[in-house]
């Protein structure tokens, strides 16, 4: 915990993104306080979320494509072995849940799994290191866990939502998709009720996907921040067990996000 801050200031600091946007008074600038972030509204961007998430995504693509380029069919080395393990794990998951032909689903599932995992993994970096370093070099805020930013999780889940709608229409036609939304579960005489039920169900998919990941990561980060408020000599008593437990959570959340994406897209392909 940085000196000269109250606990609530400290927590608020750790939960505020580095935001660049159009402030009504200051114009295009970095927000210097939580209030300025709120004032900027939609015309702003969370620079830290973008930099960290794109950086981690680029790391994923770099690592995997480097291994892919040198992949041998002989005895694989350490890194290749590990990467192949992930690939096979994702491939098995996709094959067991998605029974149509698609060149998109499996690579997308891999991207989601690894990318979300890497973003979650940032949660295990001690909460003060990078934000404090940023303050020292003059950057007001720095949230290093992109998946604790609802924009990030929503961005992925909305993309998936568009894919769900796209594939539903592609596989069943506009009419088929509409019929699916309106003629079940109760038949054509309860059309408005069916429509309400199905549309809510459809929209709930991306929302729940995004909120589940965001909620888990935000809560985990919050607990690390609260542990960081303890005296330094007592922190390890709580932070070590929580970090160990969190390893499970971040992996599980990445896996759940991937599996639900596959399931939703499989449902979009299936005819009911």
């Amino acid at each position: 915990m940085a000196s000269g801050m109250t606990s609530s200031e400290y927590i608020a600091h750790h939960l505020t993104n580095l935001t660049y946007g159009k402030h009504p008074v200051n114009g295009w600038s970095f927000a210097q306080s939580g209030q300025e972030v709120v004032d900027m509204g939609f015309m702003s961007i969370n620079v830290d979320s973008m930099v960290w998430s794109v950086g981690l995504g680029a790391f994923f693509i770099w690592l995997f494509s480097r291994v892919a380029k040198t992949a041998t069919t002989g005895v694989p080395g350490g890194v290749q072995n590990f990467i192949e393990m992930i690939i096979e794990f994702v491939d098995d998951s996709v094959k067991s849940m998605f029974h149509h032909k698609s060149a998109l689903i499996a690579p997308m599932a891999l991207t989601i799994f690894v990318w979300v995992f890497l973003m979650n993994l940032m949660d295990l970096v001690p909460v003060d290191w990078i934000p404090h370093l940023a303050v020292v070099v003059g950057i007001p805020f720095m949230k290093i866990v992109p998946s604790t930013d609802l924009n990030v999780t929503m961005g992925i889940s909305f993309s998936i939502f568009f894919l769900i709608v796209f594939y539903s229409i592609k596989q069943k036609g506009i009419g088929g998709f509409m019929a699916e939304l309106s003629l079940q579960p109760l038949g054509k005489w309860a059309l408005p009720f069916n429509l309400l039920l199905e549309v809510v169900g459809l929209i709930a998919k991306p929302i729940s996907l995004a909120l589940r990941l965001f909620g888990n990561m935000y809560a985990g980060e919050m607990i690390f921040i609260l542990i960081a408020l303890l005296p330094f000599w007592a922190q390890w008593l709580l932070s070590v067990p929580w970090a160990l437990f969190h390893i499970l959570i971040i992996t599980l959340q990445a896996f759940i996000f991937m599996v639900l994406t596959i399931v939703y897209l499989a449902m979009a392909h299936d005819h009911h």
């Binding site: 993104n17 935001t19 946007g21 972030v37 709120v38 900027m40 509204g41 939609f42 015309m43 702003s44 961007i45 969370n46 979320s49 973008m50 998430s53 794109v54 995504g57 994923f60 693509i61 995997f64 494509s65 998109l104 690579p107 997308m108 891999l110 991207t111 990318w115 930013d149 609802l150 924009n151 990030v152 929503m154 961005g155 992925i156 909305f158 993309s159």
Partner: peptide, 20 residues
Amino acid sequence: NMNMTILGQMISFAIFVYLC
């Protein structure tokens, strides 16, 4: 706050999926 980050994320996601 919901802001343009969501659009940025959608674009990055699409690019990463494409590269993958």
